[in-house]
């Protein structure tokens, strides 16, 4: 261990003791896109003990421009991002245990994963999921690190239950649809800088240097040169339903995760089965072929295309219906193909 991590042990903020502490920590990373892949690589190189990654998506060509770890071969093989990340992370550092879940991050699916971990890292692309993370963080008293970026702009904030205001305190109203990379684009340096802010705070928490935490909400724009480091102290609300005196964790309530179909991308609808399933992908692939679809499969998913219709079905029964933003149409495609 000492040779691999020698330069990090030499850093006075970490040392032998901090390195050893880091090696015993477990991080839950939600999302394996741009922020997720880069944060994962950084933590695994640094020598975190265990990393659990949750992501529902697979690697596509348009990801390669900014998402670390992934290669052209991963695109060809249509590997789920979490599975591709695990493969590359293990080539980088076989000391870290990497566990992956190719699932939708919902209150229900994340709840069992949270109690075991020391830190939750946000690498999602929507506020619906972030408010679930915010609730889970407070329910189980585990810190989480918010990060988001778009264009040349990014922001990050570290939330410590019982200490800092939470995300729910800071947002005036819930932004139903913030700017995403799909609508406004993104450049790599904005990803890198957001990751630098997130991962520096992560290392402080994981090496038990909480006194060094930043405390402010940072936002920056690398193209315009704008920068703000914003104090949050006065924003804590006693009546906050997540971190206040009568917390009820509203985003963990079941009625908030029952939607069976959601738009998740400019031209992609995700359809979920009403109840969890465990598909036999091989048989599904044969059925699709028999129906005249061009089929591509790996152990995690089946991709089927006929004319303009393209659908990717995962082992848990979820499907991504591409080429449409019409939720009703996507559901009908799903029902026609999946019965």
């Amino acid at each position: 261990m000492s040779e691999r991590y020698s330069r990090q042990i030499l850093f006075s903020g970490i040392g032998e003791k901090g390195q050893h502490t880091l090696g015993e920590k477990h991080v839950l990373l939600i999302g394996a896109g741009a922020l997720g892949s880069a944060n994962a690589e950084l933590l695994v190189r640094a020598g975190v003990g265990k990393l659990t990654i949750v992501d529902r998506d697979y690697v596509e060509e348009s990801n390669l421009q900014r998402q670390q770890l992934y290669t052209e071969k991963d695109v060809e093989q249509k590997l789920p991002k979490a599975a591709a990340a695990k493969k590359h992370l293990e080539e980088i550092n076989s000391d870290t245990e990497v566990k992956v879940h190719v699932i939708d991050a919902t209150a229900q699916s994340l709840q069992p994963l949270v109690p075991d971990v020391d830190l939750i890292m946000d690498a999602t692309d929507n506020f619906e999921t972030r408010l679930i993370l915010n609730d889970l963080s407070h329910k189980y008293n585990i810190p989480w690190i918010f990060g988001a970026c778009v264009g040349s702009f990014g922001m990050s904030y570290t939330i410590i239950p019982g200490k800092t205001p939470c995300l729910n305190c800071l947002l005036r109203t819930i932004p139903l649809q913030g700017m995403t990379c799909e609508t406004s684009g993104i450049i790599g340096p904005a990803v890198q800088m957001t990751v630098a802010y997130q991962s520096a705070e992560a290392l402080k928490i994981l090496t038990e240097n909480r006194g060094a935490l930043r405390e402010t909400f940072v936002s920056f724009d690398l193209w315009s040169g704008q920068f703000q480091s914003i104090k949050t102290g006065r924003s804590k609300k006693e009546d906050c339903l997540t971190c206040g005196t009568a917390a009820s964790y509203p985003f963990l309530q079941p009625e908030n995760s029952t939607k069976t179909a959601v738009l998740c991308g400019r031209e992609t609808v995700q359809v979920r089965p009403p109840n969890p399933v465990d598909l036999e992908l091989e048989r599904l692939g044969r059925d699709f072929s028999a129906m005249g679809y061009e089929v591509k499969a790996n152990p995690y998913l089946v991709s089927a295309q006929k004319d303009a219709e393209r659908i990717v079905v995962f082992k848990d029964g979820r499907a991504l219906v591409h080429g449409t933003k019409d939720i009703v149409h996507a559901k009908s495609v799903y029902q026609r193909l999946m019965g």
Binding site: M155, L170, G178, T180, S184
Partner: peptide, 22 residues
């Protein structure tokens, strides 16, 4: 961070920061 009700004074610098989701 400020509330909607925060009173502004001469010389203040106000930043409008939209939450982005990417």
């Amino acid at each position: 961070f400020a509330d909607d009700s925060t009173i502004l004074s001469d010389g203040d610098i106000v930043a409008f920061i939209p939450p982005v989701s990417g």
